[in-house]
Amino acid sequence: MQKALLIDPEKCTSCLQCELACSHQHTGMFNPVQSRIRVFEFEHGARAIPYTCTQCEAAWCLHACPVQAITVNAATGAKQVDADRCVGCKVCTVACPYGTINYEAHTGKVAKCDLCGGEPQCAVACPTGAITVSDPDTATHAINPLLLGRGATA
């Protein structure tokens, strides 16, 4: 694994530039509903947490896929969905314990962060440095796979 997004919620101002950039990158439209990074506000916007896939080592989505539609990008380490191969069964959406791979009704497929091929547009768009590209070992929101009982498989 080479890359992942590092998110520092302390720096997030909830400007939602990341959501706009992500949706534009992946759909050609500025439509936050289709963004693969989502900003969750707390206390009526006083605080916010940008949230997306950490490209976790356990790769729950990849292992749950029945037809190998999720693979690891050799260059970036991103777990990415092959939309042509995805049948839309959604098993990955309940298997991912982070909830960062989601079903999109308008495509009938699942979608997740793919690190934009190595240059994540959310990080480019973030004006405060709340989203940067970094070593995955230091990424936030990483749940220790050991807690999920994988033991030595983690």
């Binding site: 989502r38 959406t93 309940v94 909830g99 999920l148 009982g149």
Partner: peptide
């Protein structure tokens, strides 16, 4: 359909 996996995360962790 959005973030449903966290239900597993919350239960299993």
């Amino acid at each position: 359909t959005q973030q449903v996996g966290i239900l597993r995360g919350l239960i299993q962790t």
